[in-house]
């Protein structure tokens, strides 16, 4: 039965103010049931306050074969990191 059901990706917001993070996936026949399965599978131990589910097929993922073109060019652009500023000591949480 499970193999007939499409796969859904589950995202959980752990606390108010934080963003939803990917938690895993579930099988379900539709969105409503995917939400129930996500709730029962991933929030049993107070893991979150909000859930998103999206059918895995609807996610456009980058192709691992393209990763050198997509990601490697960023490797030697250290000037893009804001690490060259002298921060006043009063500034916290940076």
């Amino acid at each position: 039965m499970s193999s007939d059901w499409p796969l859904w990706e589950v995202f959980i917001r752990v606390r108010g103010g934080l963003s939803h993070r990917h938690a895993g996936s579930v099988h379900a026949p539709d969105g409503e049931m995917a939400m129930r399965h996500a709730r029962d599978t991933y929030t049993r131990r107070m893991e979150g306050v909000s859930l998103w589910v999206i059918q895995s097929n609807d996610i456009i993922a980058s192709d691992p074969a393209d990763s050198s073109a997509l990601f490697e060019p960023a490797q030697d652009k250290i000037y893009r990191h804001p690490t060259f500023y002298a921060l006043p000591t009063e500034v916290e949480h940076m």
Partner: peptide
């Protein structure tokens, strides 16, 4: 249960 998701759901 018929699927692992339903298994967890009933156990819950």
């Amino acid at each position: 249960a018929p699927t692992i998701e339903v298994d967890l759901s009933l156990a819950n």
